Deep mutational scan, measured.
Amino acid sequence: VTLFVASYDYEARTEDDLSFHKGEKFQILNSSEGDWWEARSLTTGETGYIPSNYVAPV
């Protein structure tokens, strides 16, 4: 399981994006799509795309 933590807050801009807060942890589901990764929030359980430059490895 690949875990990352949010370095910043992010507000979703499309329905496919995932909003999150600094400190929130994610399981990365797919990182092969470039700068936007499909992730599941371990806080909310929601799945969506997050900007990879807003998160760091745990």
Rank of each mutant, 00 (worst) to 15 (best):
T44R: 03
S32P: 10
D16K: 15
W37H: 03
R13G: 08
T2H: 11
K25S: 07
L42P: 04
E46D: 08
N53F: 10
N30Y: 06
L29V: 07
Y54H: 09
Y10H: 05
A39W: 02
S32C: 13
T2K: 11
F20W: 01
P51H: 08
L18H: 02
T44Q: 02
E33Y: 11
L29D: 04
A6Q: 00
S31I: 11
Y10A: 00
K22L: 06
E46W: 08
P51A: 04
R40P: 03
G45N: 08
S41I: 06
V1G: 12
V55R: 02
T44F: 02
R40I: 14
A6D: 01
G23M: 02
K22W: 04
V55S: 02
Y49M: 14
D16C: 15
L18E: 00
Y54N: 04
Y10E: 00
W37V: 05
H21P: 05
E15I: 10
T43L: 13
N53L: 10
K25G: 05
R13Y: 07
L18P: 00
I50T: 00
A12K: 08
N53S: 14
Y49A: 05
Y8P: 00
D16T: 14
I28M: 03
Y54K: 08
A39H: 02
D35L: 11
W36E: 04
N53E: 10
S19Q: 04
W36F: 10
S31A: 13
S32A: 12
S52L: 05
G45Y: 06
W36S: 06
E24P: 00
I50M: 02
S41P: 04
V55Q: 03
T2Q: 13
A12Q: 06
L42Q: 07
S31H: 10
K22Q: 08
L42D: 05
D17Y: 14
S41W: 02
N30T: 08
E46T: 07
S41F: 03
L18V: 05
T43M: 09
W36I: 07
D16V: 13
W36R: 14
G34K: 13
T43C: 12
S32M: 12
T2Y: 12
F20C: 01
Y8F: 12
V5R: 05
D9H: 06
R40F: 11
D9E: 06
V1R: 09
E15H: 11
L29P: 04
A56N: 10
L18D: 00
Y10I: 02
H21D: 06
V58G: 06
Y8A: 12
F4G: 03
T43W: 10
G45R: 03
L29H: 04
G23E: 03
F26Q: 01
P57K: 07
E15N: 12
G45I: 01
S52F: 07
E46P: 00
S19P: 05
D16P: 04
K22D: 02
R40S: 06
V5Y: 08
T47P: 01
W36N: 05
D17V: 15
F20D: 00
L18F: 08
G48T: 02
S52Q: 07
K25D: 01
E15C: 14
R40T: 14
S32V: 10
A56P: 04
P57N: 05
N30W: 08
V1S: 12
N30C: 08
V1T: 12
R40N: 05
L18N: 00
L29C: 08
V5D: 02
I28H: 00
L42S: 04
L29N: 04
T2V: 13
Y49W: 15
V58N: 06
K25L: 15
S19G: 07
V55A: 05
T2P: 11
E11V: 14
H21M: 12
W37R: 00
T47W: 08
L42F: 07
V5T: 07
D35W: 09
Y54D: 03
D17G: 15
R13M: 11
S7R: 15
V58S: 08
L3F: 11
N30E: 07
A12S: 10
S52I: 07
K25Y: 15
G48L: 03
V55H: 03
G48D: 00
S31D: 13
G48Q: 01
E11F: 10
S31V: 11
N53D: 10
L3H: 09
T14K: 14
Y54F: 11
S41L: 07
Q27A: 09
G23Q: 02
S31F: 15
N53K: 13
D16H: 15
L3D: 05
A56T: 15
T47Y: 08
Y8H: 11
A39C: 05
G45C: 09
F26G: 00
Q27W: 14
E38K: 10
L18T: 02
V1C: 15
A39N: 01
L18Y: 04
D35N: 09
Y8S: 10
E24W: 07
F26H: 00
E46R: 14
E11R: 08
G48C: 04
W36H: 06
F4N: 01
V5G: 02
S52M: 09
W37C: 04
P51R: 05
V1P: 12
T14W: 13
E15V: 11
V58P: 05
F4T: 03
W37S: 01
P51T: 02
E38I: 15
A56G: 08
E11I: 13
S32D: 11
R40Q: 11
R40M: 14
F4H: 05
T2I: 13
Y54T: 06
Y8I: 08
N53A: 14
F26V: 03
E33G: 13
G23D: 05
R40Y: 12
A39M: 05
A39V: 14
E38M: 15
S7C: 15
E38H: 13
R13L: 11
D35I: 09
Y10F: 09
Y49D: 02
F26W: 01
F20M: 09
A56K: 14
R40V: 13
L3V: 13
E15S: 12
H21F: 12
I50N: 01
P51N: 09
T43A: 10
T44C: 05
L3M: 10
T47D: 04
T47L: 07
I28S: 01
P57R: 06
E33N: 15
G48E: 01
T47V: 14
G23T: 02
K25Q: 12
E38N: 07
A56S: 13
Q27P: 00
K22H: 06
S31Y: 13
V1Y: 14
T14V: 07
I50E: 00
S32L: 11
T14Q: 11
W36K: 10
N30P: 04
D16E: 12
Y54I: 07
Y49H: 07
G34C: 13
F20N: 01
E15P: 13
D17Q: 15
A56W: 10
V1A: 12
E11M: 11
E15K: 13
F26L: 09
Y54A: 14
D9P: 06
R13Q: 14
G23Y: 05
E33V: 10
G34Q: 12
I28T: 01
S31L: 10
S41M: 05
G45F: 07
E24N: 05
A56V: 15
W37P: 00
D35H: 09
I28D: 00
N53P: 06
G34N: 12
Y54V: 06
P57G: 05
I50C: 04
D17F: 15
V55F: 08
I28Y: 01
L42R: 00
A56H: 14
E24H: 06
L3C: 11
V1D: 13
F4V: 10
A6P: 01
D35C: 11
H21E: 09
K25I: 15
G48S: 03
V55K: 02
P57F: 07
P57W: 06
T47Q: 09
E33L: 14
L29S: 04
T14L: 09
V58T: 08
L18K: 01
H21T: 13
G23P: 01
I28K: 03
S19E: 03
A12W: 03
A6T: 03
G34E: 13
G48M: 03
Y54Q: 07
A12L: 02
A6C: 06
S7Q: 15
A56M: 14
Y49S: 06
T44K: 03
Q27I: 15
R13A: 10
V58Q: 08
W36G: 02
G45A: 04
Q27H: 11
A6H: 00
Y8E: 10
H21S: 12
A39P: 00
N53R: 13
S7H: 14
G34S: 12
G45V: 02
